[in-house]
Design a binder for these strands. Sequence first.
DNA 1: GAAGTATTTCTGTGAATACTGAAATTGCAG
DNA 2: CTGCAATTTCAGTATTCACAGAAATACTTC
Lengths: 176, 176
Amino acid sequence: MKELSPVQQKFILHWGEMGTRWGINRTVAQIHALLFIAPKPLNAEDIASTLNVARSNVSNSLKELQGWRIVKLVHVLGDKRDHFESMKDPWEMFRIVLDERKRREIDPTLEMLRECIAEAEKDKATDEYTEERLKALRDFFEMTTAWYTQLRKWPTAAVVKFVKLGDKVSKLLGIG
Amino acid sequence: MKELSPVQQKFILHWGEMGTRWGINRTVAQIHALLFIAPKPLNAEDIASTLNVARSNVSNSLKELQGWRIVKLVHVLGDKRDHFESMKDPWEMFRIVLDERKRREIDPTLEMLRECIAEAEKDKATDEYTEERLKALRDFFEMTTAWYTQLRKWPTAAVVKFVKLGDKVSKLLGIG
DNA sequence: GAAGTATTTCTGTGAATACTGAAATTGCAG
DNA sequence: CTGCAATTTCAGTATTCACAGAAATACTTC
């Protein structure tokens, strides 16, 4: 994995670009892409030279990716350097990312909404309409997160089965 | 809506912050938050003075929000200035945003993956493992987007019903 | 515990992004 | 048309973010 093939370059560049669209640092996303298609764990030096970024940048980015829990530090026999590998199963991987985003962003948002609603109730006069809208938002987040929490418990295979049902779900449940 | 109450400020600031986490400009997200809790359509001048940002900044941000199709230009009787209002139903609103993100980001990513896979197949030697991983990603995106496309057709009420079923879904479908 | 290697932290620089205020344009009303 | 108000565009500025390279720290191995 010293030199990237055109295909690999294309994928890594695109993934980096997508990262920025979703609030992920470009280099962080590129490193993730590289590790994702790497057949074996890579060390930081390999990553730095392959992507042409500074060693320190790689170090910080790897920390970030480990924080997202989709990249893990592993050791390779006969090599004392740290190596890193990405999760390989997209289903698992996105599940982890969703968990993490829920924890970091959705949960605090729900918390904020509840606080705002509580405060708005004390001052009905000025915040009546605000309160109504915030309640709608809160209900939305509560319902979707509760649903996700359930979905989260299903094994990957069940999720795949479920998704494969597609349109049939609404008919089977009689809610379409 | 000249002066914001503490509750409104709190909400708007938080929403702006969340925006940045998801790749949305902070001011854009704040304007959206303001419009979301505004009982009536606001004109650009109102928005600028309420949020203390430049008039031109508001103009551009509103364009952006209209691009996301969650803010619409409306006219108020007896006022020739443009006014703007946000979608109010969170379910609708997030559906629109998801549509838009699918169109802008997921669809092009799928396209890229298919191209990469096609190219990788020509050069099995160097890209064998890459090809395998990209296929796994492609399958993931294909399946989830196909599912979303189905879900997309359900009326909001059906989605709410579905989400309310929660854990029962897996039992009813016999896939848990 | 010393030497050498790997890793992280830190600080300054550069690039990208966001923002402002002025200028230009558009759209109406008289 | 003409003049005024609203809106957009543009160019310069500021702020934020990303990054490199040096310095410091932590690990290994002997």
